[in-house]
Structure formats: structure tokens, C-alpha cells
Amino acid sequence: MIRKTLLATTLLLPVLSGGCVAKAAFDVVTLPVKAAGKAVDWTTTSQSEADRNYGKKMRKAEEREGAERKQWEKECRQHKRNDCDRYEGYRARD
């Protein structure tokens, strides 16, 4: 009698628990796959990140070019040179 009750309870436990045991087992099995996926996401650069980084790099280069050009023009005016229109300094490029 006790065996039958124990067996019935054991068999009905997953049904009565609403699949919690099955869900927990599924989570344990899929955890390494999810962790590996996160690691790949952290180590790779998406296209939007690459575009954002490239834009940032180009803005800094243009800013550096502007500052250099301004400094060059200032020095040119101070020394009253005739070649002030031929700036051949840094150009922002890839």
C-alpha cells in the first residue's frame, strides 16, 4: 500500500509541480550554451559598433586637423608669410 502511494506520488510529482522540475533541468542543460553565446557577444564587434567607432575616430581626426590648421594660420599671420593659402599639413583620412 505504501509502495503504491509512493509510486503514484513520484509519478504525479512532475505533473503537479507544473513542470518546474522539467524547466529547471532544461535551464541547467542550456546554461553552458547561453554562457558561450554571451561570451561571443562580448568579444565580437557588431556592425553598428564598428560604424560608431569609425565615426568617432574620424571626428577626432577632423578635430585634430582643424586645430593644426588654425595653429598654422596663426603662425603664418604672425610671420607675415606669402604662402599662407597652401596648407599641406595633416588631412583627416582613413
Rank of each mutant, 00 (worst) to 15 (best):
Q47H: 03
S17D: 05
P14Y: 15
E63L: 08
K70W: 04
Q71T: 06
P32D: 02
G66R: 04
K57I: 02
N53K: 15
R77K: 13
Q78D: 15
G55C: 07
A92N: 08
T10C: 05
T43G: 03
K38G: 04
D27W: 09
N53M: 14
K56M: 10
G89N: 09
T44Q: 13
K34N: 03
K56H: 03
T44M: 14
A36Q: 02
E63K: 09
E88Y: 04
R64N: 08
V40G: 00
P32H: 02
V29K: 12
S46H: 07
E65Q: 13
W42T: 11
D83H: 06
R86P: 01
N82G: 10
Q78K: 15
T10P: 00
T5Y: 06
R52T: 15
C20K: 09
N53V: 05
R81I: 14
L11M: 10
R3S: 07
P32R: 08
G89D: 11
P14V: 10
K4A: 14
W72E: 02
L16K: 03
K70R: 10
F26T: 14
S17R: 01
N82D: 13
V40I: 15
L12Q: 01
D27K: 05
T30F: 08
R64K: 15
K70F: 10
A67V: 12
A39C: 07
L11K: 11
E88M: 12
G18A: 04
K34Y: 06
R3A: 08
A24Y: 04
K74F: 10
L13S: 07
E73S: 05
F26G: 03
A8S: 08
R81C: 14
A92L: 02
T43W: 04
M1V: 11
L6Y: 05
Y90G: 00
N82S: 09
H79L: 10
E68F: 01
K80Q: 10
G55M: 06
G89A: 08
F26Q: 15
K74H: 11
R59N: 03
E49K: 09
P14Q: 12
L13W: 02
A25H: 05
L11F: 11
A22H: 07
G18W: 03
D41Q: 13
Y90I: 07
R93K: 15
M1Y: 04
T43C: 01
A67H: 05
R81H: 07
L7P: 02
G66W: 02
R3F: 10
D41P: 00
D94W: 12
D83W: 06
T10V: 05
K56T: 07
P32C: 06
N82Q: 03
T9D: 05
M1H: 12
R59C: 06
A22I: 14
V29M: 06
K57A: 12
R93A: 13
V29N: 04
R69P: 00
V15F: 15
C20L: 14
V15S: 00
T45Q: 07
Q78F: 14
H79R: 12
V28W: 09
D94Q: 10
H79C: 03
A50R: 14
K4P: 00
E75T: 12
P14G: 09
N53T: 13
G18S: 01
E75D: 15
R81Y: 04
E88R: 14
R69E: 03
T9G: 08
R86S: 15
D83C: 10
E65H: 01
W72V: 06
A35M: 11
E62H: 12
L6S: 05
E63A: 10
K34G: 01
V15W: 00
W42I: 13
T30P: 01
Y90H: 11
L7E: 11
L12M: 12
A67P: 00
